[in-house]
Design a protein around this nucleic acid. Sequence first.
DNA 1: TCGGAATTGTTGCGTCGATGCACATATTAC
DNA 2: GTAATATGTGCATCGACGCAACAATTCCGA
Lengths: 390, 390
Amino acid sequence: MSNSGSNLDRLRRANLATVLGIVHRSRSVSRAQITAETGLYRSTVGALVTELAALGFVIEGEPEATNRVGRPSPLVTPAPGVVAIAVNPEVDAVTLGVVGLGASVEHRVRHPVESPVTPEQTVRIVRDLLDALRPGPLAGRRVAGIGIAVPGLVRTADGLVRLAPHLGWRDAPLTRLFEEELGLPTVADNDASLGALAEHLFGVGRGVDDLVYLNGGASGIGGGVIADGRPLRGAGGYAGEFGHNRPAVQDRTSERGALEDEVSRARLLAAAALAVADEPTLARALLGATDQSVRDELARQRRVLATALSNAANVLNPSLIVLGGFLATLLASDPVGLAGLVADQTLPPAAEGLRLRPAALGEDRLLIGAAELVFAPVIADPATLQRTAS
Amino acid sequence: MSNSGSNLDRLRRANLATVLGIVHRSRSVSRAQITAETGLYRSTVGALVTELAALGFVIEGEPEATNRVGRPSPLVTPAPGVVAIAVNPEVDAVTLGVVGLGASVEHRVRHPVESPVTPEQTVRIVRDLLDALRPGPLAGRRVAGIGIAVPGLVRTADGLVRLAPHLGWRDAPLTRLFEEELGLPTVADNDASLGALAEHLFGVGRGVDDLVYLNGGASGIGGGVIADGRPLRGAGGYAGEFGHNRPAVQDRTSERGALEDEVSRARLLAAAALAVADEPTLARALLGATDQSVRDELARQRRVLATALSNAANVLNPSLIVLGGFLATLLASDPVGLAGLVADQTLPPAAEGLRLRPAALGEDRLLIGAAELVFAPVIADPATLQRTAS
DNA sequence: TCGGAATTGTTGCGTCGATGCACATATTAC
DNA sequence: GTAATATGTGCATCGACGCAACAATTCCGA
C-alpha cells in the first residue's frame, strides 16, 4: 500500500535492471547495442555499465571485430563472480547446478538416491554438495541464492510445497528449511513452470512472449505458461497443471480420464515392450517401430494430446507450444499429423499463428529455470546483493 | 527496439499515470490517500494532482467529513470533461455508451436493428448517434476515443475483426473504418475479454488479480482471463475462447462436443419449453421449475461446465471464476453443487483458493470494458490527450 | 599512405523531478 | 481556548538523464 510511485532512486534501479537484464539474456552485447536497445543516451549507458561493473555483475571486454566504420564498442558480458545454486530433487536423485548470469551452467552434480528424499535430507545433501564445491567452482564467488525446481505444487509466495506426490511431500516448508540451514535466500517453483521460463529465455522460445510448455516424464505431465513475456503463476502459483485436465477423449482408457492418464510414458513403454528405458532409448524404439500396435498407441496418444493442446490454444492463444520429454517423441512421431489435429480443434485465427516445437535445452533446462528464479530479484535491483563473498 | 530505458520524462508520466489510475479506479480519493498509496511525498502528490487538474482529468473538491484529527484532505474525483464512447454491435442492436473516467456510464443508447449490421453500417449508426448526442451529453466534453466490444475474435494489435460469426463479419478492418470515418482513435476487443476487464476493475473481481470470466449468451459462451492483474490476450489477442474447448463429457449430446454445444441457452430454453425469453425470464423459469426434465438438464449442463471450469482452474489457478448470462443461472441453480463438482476435478491446492460468483455489473459491463480500452492509453500518458474539444 | 566520413566513448554542464524541511492551515480532543 | 495531529505549500537541494563538444578508432577511397 505504499510503493506504486516512482522516484529518482527507482528510475536508476530500473535502468540498471534493464541493462543487466539485456546482458543476462544476450550473454554478450556491445555498449552501442545496449544504447540502441534501451534508447538511453551513450553517456547514461556508460555510467550504468560502469556501475554494474563496479558492483561485480558485468565485465567490459575487448570490442568484437566488426567490419564497420566507427569506433569499436566494448563488449559487455556477465561477470563470472555471481552464481546461483539450482537444485532439482527427483525420485531417484538430487541434481545441483552452479549457474552464472547468462544462464551458463558451470557445474552440475547428480546425487543419486535409493528412495525419495525428504525435504530435510534434501537440505543435507545440498549442504554437503556445496561444501565439496566451495574450494572449487564456488571459490571467490558470490552466491546470489538457491533456486529449487520441485516436481509438485509450490505456493510461490513463501515456497511451501503443497503437494509433491512422487516425492511424498505435503505442505513442506522447503525454502524456510533451506534458509534456516544454509543461510542463503531460497526460492522454489514447480519444475515445469521453470522449464517454460528457461525455454522462453534461452531455448526454442527465445523472443516468443506467449508460449505453452508441456513436459512428459515418468511421473506424469507437467506444464508451464509464459503470457505476455512473463510466467503465468496464478493466484497461488499452481498454474500450468495441464496434466490433470480432462480433455474430451474418443476412446477413454482410464477411469479418471485426465490427460496424464491417457497420454503416459508407461503406456508407451508397454506398447514398445520395454521395462525401463531412458528417454533416447524409448524415442528410438518408438520412432523406429513398424509394429502396428505401437503405431496405434502413438496415434491414440497424439489424438488425446491434440485435444488438450487445442483447449490450451483456445484459452491462451500462444504462438508456440513447446513439448519436452516423451511428448517431444509424440510430436516427432508425426509432426504434421499432430499439428493438423490441433489446428482442427482450434479456432482458425488462433491456429494460424501457432507452431509446435520440441524443447531445446536438454538436461540443463530445469537448472537454468531455477537459477532464473534466483537471478530475477537480483537483476531487478542489482545494488541490493551484498558484495560479501560466499 | 529503442524504448526499454527510462528517463525523467517517463518518470513523471508514470507518476501521473499512477495517480490518475488511482482516481479512476477509486472514483474518489483524498490527496492524503493518494500519498499513502503511492508512497510519494505530499508535495509531489500535490504537484501531480494540480497538473492532472490543469489537464482537465481530475477535480479537487471539498474534503470528506471524516471524524479524525488533522487538516482535512481535499477529495480528488475524475473530471466529467473526458469521456470515452463505448460501442457494442450485436445481432439485434448496436448499443452506444458515453462513459466517463471512474467507469461512470453517463448515457446509453440502444439502437435496434432488424438484421445484423455490417461494419460500415455500424460506423454510420455510431456517427448518427454521436451527432444526436453532441448538443447534449457530449457538449463541452473531450472524447478520448472509441472502444468497441465485438462478439468475435479481434486481432487486438490493429483492431481487425478476424471472425464474428453471428454478425457475419470476417477480416473486417473495424477500427480503421471508424478512424477514417469519425476521426477518433478507436480500439476494439472481444466482448467477453472486456467483460472480464470490467468485472476485474469495477465488479465482483475488484482487487482480484487472477480471475476467469465466462459469459453465456444466445450465441454461445465467451470468456476472458485476468492474470496477475492484467488482461490475458495471447499472441494475437484471441485468448479466452473457452466456449470452443472440448472438455470431457460423460454423455455427449452434440457431435463436436465443444463446451458451448453442450452447455447452451438454446437447450435451457427447450427444457423450460420457452420459445424466446430475456435473461431474467429464463432464470425465473429455470430456478422455479419443479419439472424433473428441467432439473436434469440443469444438472447435466452443470456437470459439463464443472469440467470445463476445472480445466481452466488447473491451468490458470484463478482465485475467482465469474459467471455471467445464463451461466450465472446455472450457478444459481445449485451453487454448492457446482462448486463441489469443480473442486472434485481441480487439484486441491488450486481448488482451495477458488470461489465461483455471478457477475455484478449487469448491462453496463461491456460499455465499461470498452471504455477501459480507450482510457488505458490516456491514463498511461495523460499529457498526450489534446485539450481541443470534441 | 593519408585524409575524410562514420561511429562511439568521455567529459562537463544544464534541465527537471522528487524530496524534505519549515511553515501555514484546519480539524479533533480536552 | 489551547495542545495535538494531520495535511497543504513554498523553497532549497540532490541526483539522474540528455546534450554538446571533443577524443578515439575504424573503414574506405584516392
